[in-house]
């Protein structure tokens, strides 16, 4: 089955990242690269998204509206995604559990 792992950043995580020294940040990025390498055979593609400040949201029902920012003005925003192909949800959860960066991962099967 195919699943999309949505990586979700929280405000605290963004602050932690900002507070890191260069060495620490390099180590954090290296951990993410290792994760992608480790699961390469199961990841069909993945992207990191530009920061939420770059988002534009269109609401098409009712009076069409264009707003600056992500669709939900919340403390948690999607910062990237990876599509994986695995046998079932347990395997998808095992892959997601080892994710070394942002603290929330949503797993959604592709319809």
């Amino acid at each position: 089955m195919k699943y999309v792992l949505m990586f979700i950043e929280t405000e605290e995580f963004a602050e932690e990242l900002a507070a890191m020294g260069e060495l620490e940040r390099d180590a954090a990025y290296a951990a993410v690269e290792r994760w992608f390498a480790e699961h390469a055979d199961r990841i069909t593609h993945h992207r990191h998204l530009a920061p939420k400040e770059t988002a534009t949201t269109l609401r098409l029902r009712g009076e069409p509206m264009v707003t600056d920012g992500p669709f939900m003005e919340g403390k948690e925003v999607v910062s990237g995604y990876a599509e994986i192909e695995v046998a079932d949800l347990d395997e998808a959860m095992a892959v997601a559990r080892s994710w070394p960066a942002c603290p929330v991962v949503e797993i959604r099967p592709l319809a």
Binding site: M1, Y3, A87, D88, L89, D90, A92, A94, I107, P109
Partner: peptide, 14 residues
């Protein structure tokens, strides 16, 4: 059914 919850024993660790 739709999220693919499997019907098998998890690994020993799990």
């Amino acid at each position: 059914a739709e999220a693919g919850v499997p019907y098998r024993m998890p690994s020993e660790a799990e």
